[in-house]
Structures are given as C-alpha cells and as structure tokens.
C-alpha cells in the first residue's frame, strides 16, 4: 500500500459518501411533506454531500492550486446556501400550505397577523424606493 493508493481509496470513499448524501437529498425532496422540510433537505444534506465530493476531488488531484480552488468552492457554497434557504423560508412561512402541525417551535406564530397584513399591503406599494 503506497500513499497514492491510500489517498485514492479515501477519495473514492468520500466521493461515494457524497453521492449518497446527494441521493438522500433527492429522496427527501420527493418524500417530505411541505416546502419548509424540503428546504431543510436542500440546505443541509445537499451541501454536506457536495463538500464530501469536493474533499474526494481534492484528495485525488493533490496539487496546491486545485485544492485552493476546491476550498473556495466549498466556502462559497457554505456562504450562499443559507442565504437561499433563508429567503425561501421567509417567503414560504405565512402561506397556508405549510404543515403547522409538523413545526416543533414556531417563533413567528404571535406575529402572523402582522406578517399577513404586510404581505397583503405589499403589491399596492409601487413607490420607486421599494421597486428599485
């Protein structure tokens, strides 16, 4: 067993584990009941799966420039995935197709009337400051 063989084996294990997590995210998208739980599947197992694939790729390429690029990809993914999930969650929350019985804590429940009023008033607001 040379070092190259060991690194290739570890890289292969990382690639397969990452692909399994991607598949888990796909299955979760099909089976989960509402948009909030699907958002959870998109944000967490998906990013971890991509990071594992990137780790496997880095172990296989083994040059400084490529590893730097892959670290950058991982950092950007970690920075942007929560932003997307947060925006989707904020938009999804007051809609009626959210399964409220599945929520463990609902910190916005006290404010829901105000949120609905804000959302209902928004389309009439056509001032340039809001639309630009």
């Amino acid at each position: 067993m040379t070092l190259d063989t060991i690194l290739d084996t570890v890289a292969g294990v990382c690639l397969v584990a990452g692909a399994l997590l991607c598949l888990a995210a796909g299955i979760a998208l099909i089976r989960f009941p509402d948009v909030l739980s699907r958002m959870h599947a998109a944000a967490k197992p998906q990013v971890l799966g991509l990071l594992l694939v990137l780790l496997g790729c880095a172990l296989r390429l083994r040059t400084g420039v490529d590893i730097t690029t892959l670290v950058l990809v991982g950092l950007f993914q970690l920075a942007t995935a929560p932003v997307a999930a947060h925006m989707v969650g904020r938009t999804a929350y007051p809609h009626d197709d959210i399964r409220r019985d599945l929520l463990i804590t609902d910190e916005l429940a006290g404010d829901i009337d105000r949120i609905r009023a804000d959302r209902a008033g928004e389309p009439q607001d056509t001032s340039p400051a809001r639309t630009s």
Partner: peptide, 16 residues
Amino acid sequence: VATDVLLAVVGAAIAT
C-alpha cells in the same frame, strides 16, 4: 428549492 438541489448535483458531477 429543487432547482438549487439540481444545481448542487450537477456541481458534484463536475467535481467527480
């Protein structure tokens, strides 16, 4: 959300 996941799957495929 599903498009986001599809994008990450494509990224994983490119890395592989």
